[in-house]
Design a binder for these strands. Structure first.
Lengths: 213, 213
DNA sequence: CGGGGCCTTGATGCTGTTCAAATAGAGTGG
DNA sequence: CCACTCTATTTGAACAGCATCAAGGCCCCG
């Protein structure tokens, strides 16, 4: 295969996700709905069964920071403190399993706690990676990194973006116009091919990788 | 507990730090020395008794990312994986207590694990805060935030920077020249006063705060 | 006194933002 | 199914902020 083996840093947390699917209460959220709000009590842990989610944080001056995007199987709501520092919103219709932390504590035989611990560690790594992207990359490199991380979710590298350009811009700390320009540029270079503004396929993993480096 | 609640977001982790001071092996590092390296085995947990430390990460293209600065009482080396993703270097002569994770596991009566957990949570929060600074702030705001976070360590707001301008620049994702200019600017506005290029005092907390917002 | 870091300051240019406008797409009601 | 509307996206042009390049000053230490 023409693309590198480091296809995403995603590792699964089977225990936690599996347990949440079995024991958690099932909830549904329509596209655009808020799953939990910034400063909400953070007692619930959510496991995303279907759909996709973004976490956002509003600043005093109205600017918006996107924490992360989450997909099927991801655990969200693992905030470190008593209240959520980010809000979570459904990018598409979602089904979610939730459990109370306190319930987990009762069930918790150590293995579960390990799983939560592991998920938190992953969250820290994702944040550090994000920091690196924002801190040390050009606009083009950021967009390339992002597209690659999304495309890595599919073996053929053909995916549909569930988020808007504005979401991407907020995540990458760029403007929507710059994101759009970089996307056009990557397409002109025949590195990716967009069939519509949301659907694309990777054409050259190698060049995408070297840009994302 | 009545630990000093300064202006910053710093909370202490008395248990872990206290235990490390009692049980940990004592080590000294001269200014500039590496405490652990990137990709080193991450079995040791370090507690900074005196001195200050920076964690750095080198990228393939030679650019350098600074993870954080640490001071007396901080716990470093709490990486999430088996190896260190950042190197740690002494900014000044340091004394450090170290223990093996495995040792802690033996000692661990739950309370210790909670303390490690707490320290990791703090690390995540610090990283998220850093992300926010890099992602959504101008050069001037970044430098103001940084000076404020440092000054918060002292009740009078009079402190000595232990790091070089280059360290600050790498941390804030700016160039050394821009950092220097912003420092000069903040001084011209009489918000801070530098007695030498490393020592300063906050003159107007209000203005500094509103810039750092 | 001289050398070498480290820091500051100035001039110029590039990258990404801002402002503006056109185009494409999705959703809705007839 | 089509026309209409509203939002999302793309593209262009001018501008701003920070980087880069260059030169000079400060300070420590031999």
């Amino acid at each position: 295969m023409g693309y590198p083996m480091t296809r995403g840093t995603q590792r699964s947390v089977p225990t936690l996700a599996a347990v949440l699917e079995r024991f958690g209460a099932k909830m549904s959220f329509a596209k655009g709905r808020e799953i939990f709000g910034q400063d909400d009590d953070a007692d619930l842990i959510h496991c995303l069964v279907t759909g996709s989610v973004r976490t956002t944080r509003l600043m005093s001056d109205g600017r918006r920071q996107i924490g992360n995007f989450y997909y099927r199987g991801d655990v969200i709501g693992l905030e470190t403190g008593p209240v959520h520092r980010f809000a979570a919103e459904a990018l598409a219709d979602c089904t979610i399993r939730v459990v109370r932390r306190s319930t987990l504590g009762v069930l918790g035989d150590g293995e579960l706690n390990m799983a939560i611990w592991e998920a938190t560690r992953r969250e820290l790594e994702r944040t550090q990676e994000h920091l690196l992207v924002l801190g040390r990359k050009s606009a083009c490199e950021r967009v390339a990194s992002f597209l690659m991380s999304v495309a890595n979710r599919d073996a053929a590298g053909r995916v549909s973006l569930t988020m808007t350009r504005q979401d991407m811009a907020d995540y990458l700390d760029l403007t929507i116009e710059t994101v759009s320009r970089m996307v056009s540029q990557l397409q002109a270079l025949q590195i990716v091919e967009f069939t519509s503004c949301r659907d694309f396929q990777v054409k050259s993993w190698g060049e995408l990788q070297s840009l994302a480096a």
